[in-house]
Design a protein around this nucleic acid. Structure first.
Lengths: 224, 224
DNA sequence: GGCTAATTGATAGTATTACTATTACTTTTG
DNA sequence: CAAAAGTAATAGTAATACTATCAATTAGCC
């Protein structure tokens, strides 16, 4: 899988950026160090000025790639979900048993990114932390409906829809497949956060992962 | 219930505010119109300067009550969860059947606030919208561990714990009661958001509410 | 190798945000 | 009616979130 992913470009809605960061060395530096810096400072404390200092460039250069830090976050999280989607499709494509297929999809969707494949300028382990801590801020805004119409969240929606279909393939009588797919995707991020900061609110810990919880849920909720 | 709640004061950790907003007319105006304004503008666009203009007071007066808008959000959401907790305890206290008790708790925890009791200066319907749109921003920060230690999220944790206990009372063998309680609380907020902005990601709509989804989940997941 | 266009850097500037400080005025309460 | 508490008015600062302009550098191409 690694080899294929190395040559892969996640395609992201062009209106999210002003200039494709994949198209230049500076663009890649912005993305690479942007990920590191958002993770370090948190999204609220992150600024383009600080990032410019980090990569020894200027604010105005960064503004040529992204309108503002909000769009930058949308870009990063879109890339993440695109990457997850590839992994999921790749890992489930040749599984014929619907239950096995769904379980494998849940494994991919809910597990913490542990290894660093480092196949390009993006560190997925750190990006995963950003998604856990910051993803919801990308859509919990007053502009969400406009941005949704522009297709900013298309990749996530497509991924959620794939899981929905797999749920219905396992149990066509289950009445809430779309909701359950959303719960798995969004709530697994939340559970990773709880594990790290509110351990009393979850049964997940070092041994028991959110993946265990969600697989158990699926296996006991769906009839097959 | 209304009559009792009218005379009720939700007690909130004193380090969240500088001066208790319940203790003066200005404090109550800050809270009342703060709720309205955050709902209108969204938390990012909300400032104390705008609120001061709205209530025909000054920024400096508001800063005497709350250190910053983040603490203000924590205050409002703490109040909300305290209010929910009272409703939940009140509505479930005299139910002896554990399944009925849990279902009633889920009803309270996951339903949209529809009526305006207006028993005080706080409009719970609008506050509920704020919680749906902004609650996660109150803990998805770099300061979460410090603030958690200070007890800023104590009410929410207590509420989650009550639901956890009810889950275990229904099915002592269920291995993830804390996680499931968290899922119900956090993911129901998320589903209200999806219903309003990403309808393709949920099966909830005008007829089917998040409450239906979560009750169905509980009834099919727990063994009793 | 030189020309042109595109890209990046350097600098400056603006409006707004997120506060802090001080002083003066106005209520409330004892 | 005096003291204390609460509130308003004003001013000021550092940082943020940009925009604009022009100069310097680099890249693509004949």
């Amino acid at each position: 899988m690694d080899a294929i992913l190395k040559n892969l470009k996640i395609s992201i809605n062009e209106s999210i950026f002003l200039k494709d960061p994949e198209s230049s060395a500076l663009g890649k530096r912005i993305v690479k160090h942007g990920i590191i810096l958002i993770n370090e400072l948190g999204f609220e404390n992150f600024t383009f000025k600080k990032l410019a200092f980090h990569i020894e460039s200027t604010e105005s250069s960064i503004y040529r790639y992204f309108e503002n830090k909000h769009k930058f976050l949308i870009y990063l999280t879109s890339w993440y979900w695109g990457w997850k989607e590839y992994q999921l499709v790749f890992a489930t494509n040749n599984i014929t048993d619907p239950v096995e297929k769904l379980l494998q999809a849940i494994e991919i969707a809910t597990r913490e990114v542990e290894e660093d494949h480092s196949f390009n300028h993006i560190n997925e382990v750190i990006l995963n932390k950003i998604v856990i801590n910051e993803y919801s801020k990308s859509y919990l805004t007053k502009e969400v409906d406009d941005e949704n119409k522009e297709g900013y969240f298309a990749i996530y929606k497509r991924l959620s829809n794939r899981i929905k279909t797999m749920i219905s393939d396992v149990d066509p009588t289950y009445p809430y497949p779309a909701s359950l797919a959303s719960t798995i995707l969004a709530d697994s991020l939340h559970h990773h956060f709880l594990k790290n900061h509110f351990s009393s609110l979850t049964d997940c810990d070092e041994e028991t992962s959110p993946s265990h919880y969600f697989k158990h849920l699926i296996l006991n909720l769906l009839k097959f």
